[in-house]
């Protein structure tokens, strides 16, 4: 295995586990898959997350939603900014991990930087998107009427295969900054960045269960995620070689009318926050 740069010393290898409910469990299934470097060296035994792991993650996300969705926008912004700080502090580790997984050094450096900047970008939106997308509606009666976004609920995220770190951050930041909680299937091609990102989240004051990271395979888990009745929305980051995914997701989502987002790119903008928001309109009479 890798990381034996210094021949005098035997390296300590990391076990890559799932991140569910603020803990790092192994998959309950006990299964793993080998992640190999370009030169064929085995990088890690990665947990092959199961349907049960997804279900546990949804339970954790549902529990976390009650509090996270009611935190102040300011606090959510602070926490996401804290995530950026933590990632900044570990940029070397993430860069190395990307390089190990086959990304060129220059690209890896750029990807980590962009990931950090994305977190800062969305952290800044936390108390602004509600202002941009809310309205006081001038109704023609003696009522005060306003509409504002509220988080949709538990969101399943099928993160992009590549870029594995930036894609993950671009997918989950708009989901959680809006007060949703997430159950994420990380890249299976480069799973290490996603799993290590859990460590960043864990040390960033993000409450347990707000983001749950599962490694594994889409073929096995996509249906479970899309059909789970306690999941309110699903974000599918489309892969060019998996054209059938969106139909599977859409079909499975019908039963409880999940909101379905299919992304063909990972552009960052506030409309992506709004894909996981519901507009609530409140009326109240005006009279003394």
């Amino acid at each position: 295995m890798s990381r034996q740069e210094n021949s005098d010393r035997l390296g300590v290898l990391k076990t890559y586990k799932l991140y569910i409910d603020g803990k790092f469990p192994r998959t309950e299934s006990g299964r793993y898959f080998k992640l190999k470097a370009a030169d064929g060296k085995i990088l890690a035994n990665v947990c092959q997350g199961s349907r049960k792991d997804v279900r546990d993650a949804v339970t954790a996300a549902r529990t976390a939603f009650a509090k996270w969705s009611r935190q102040t926008a300011y606090l959510r912004g602070q926490i996401l900014y804290r995530v950026a700080e933590m990632l900044e502090g570990r940029r070397l580790q993430f860069t190395e991990e990307l390089v190990e997984q086959g990304v060129t050094r220059d690209k890896a450096i750029a990807e980590v930087s962009e990931s950090i900047d994305t977190l800062v970008y969305y952290a800044g939106w936390s108390d602004k998107y509600p202002q941009i997308f809310s309205a006081v509606n001038p109704v023609a009666s003696s009522h005060f009427n306003f509409s504002m976004p509220e988080p949709t609920g538990v969101v399943c995220v099928l993160a992009p295969e590549l870029p594995s770190l930036l894609g993950l951050v671009r997918a989950i930041a708009p989901v959680i900054i809006g007060g949703n909680t997430a159950v994420v299937l990380v890249s299976s091609k480069q799973p290490l960045s996603g799993i290590t990102f859990g460590e960043v989240l864990h040390t960033s004051d993000l409450p347990s269960g707000v983001v749950n990271l599962v490694s594994g395979f889409r073929d096995e888990l996509i249906k479970t995620m899309a059909s789970h009745m306690d999941v309110n929305a699903i974000l599918l980051c489309a892969e060019k070689d998996r054209v059938g995914d969106s139909v599977v997701v859409q079909e499975q989502a019908i039963e409880n009318l999940k909101r379905v987002s299919v992304w063909k790119d990972i552009e960052a903008n506030p409309y992506r926050i709004m894909e996981f928001q519901e507009i609530k309109t409140t009326w109240h009479p005006v009279g003394a």
């Binding site: 009666s141 309109t281 009326w283 109240h284």
Partner: peptide
Amino acid sequence: VVWANTYNKFDPTSP
């Protein structure tokens, strides 16, 4: 839609 101290009100400006 939440109607507080009223119910079944509609208006074109109101989502």
